[in-house]
Amino acid sequence: MDMAFIIETVVKIVVILLVFSALAGFGTYFERKVLAFMQRRLGPMHVGPYGLLQIAADGIKLFTKEDIIPQNVVKPIFQIAPVITAATAFMAAAAIPFMPSFTIGDYTVHPIVADINIGILYILGVMGAGLYGPLLGGLASANKWSLISTARAAAIFISYEVITGLSILAPLMMVGSLSLIDFNTYQAGGIGNWIVWSQPVAFILFVIAGFAETGRTPFHLVANDHEIIDGFGTEYSGMRWGLFFIGEYANMFFISFVTAILFLGGYGDGSLLGALGLLLKVSFLFFFFLWTRAAWPDVRPDQLMWLCWKVLMPIAVINIVITGIVMMV
């Protein structure tokens, strides 16, 4: 029994790591293709059919590139920072139910590494800890652009953690649990039961905060190549830079999963159809990230902070108060 549990968990961890590392690669391919079609060009076309092997080529390039550590950096911190970004992104995945449970023979598999009863709190916490990647990487880089990027990262991530937290407080009050599986069960009754209908404001706030936390356009400020070169990644090369990249894309996928489970009904009743539905929802949310990037310019850091503290936070608080009153009455 114990042995089976350990084996199952290890297998799940390996599967999640492999699948999402690969997905991060596919994410870049997907992003390049989607942007290309929106911008009337072809995107990657030369490596493999329709450029599909571009991911492999990029991977080989990143792995075989020289790992340059500049002279004035703080070496151990500089080396560990990208690992933090990638590791925290994947650690957050532990509490996400990716699919409904299914049975192999007479053994029931729960596709979640750890169904802890404070799942949401755990995900938010670990994702918040992901801030240390850019923060330490930027500070250790001995580069002024990285330093500016670090200042931006600290301000933006901490501010938007507040929005994320406050925006899901209202749905939390309704469901009365911090476990994502309970969230899923709460909405299992069909499209009408989705939390997005009862908590549209919270949904919008959560998505906006998701954009800020993953650093996607229009909040692409931490590594804004037009202004501050590559921000905290300026001095990185090869696979260390690649780890930041994988972390960012894995985060996008996990945020999409969390949004889909929190607000859009998750995998529904647990049937195969529900599982496919979840994948569709996640794909759409991921596509939405890319769509926004093709359509909108970036805001300025001070405008982003203005948006956070003067617009989104009051709305989130009011939303909580109204939810509370409605629940009491």
Binding site: Q39, T217, R293, A294
Partner: peptide, 16 residues
């Protein structure tokens, strides 16, 4: 100029 503020798509709309 538009690319500098991250409005990428304009670049191709104007450069084609």
């Amino acid at each position: 100029g538009l690319l500098d503020m991250g409005a990428q798509t304009n670049y191709w709309y104007l450069f084609n």
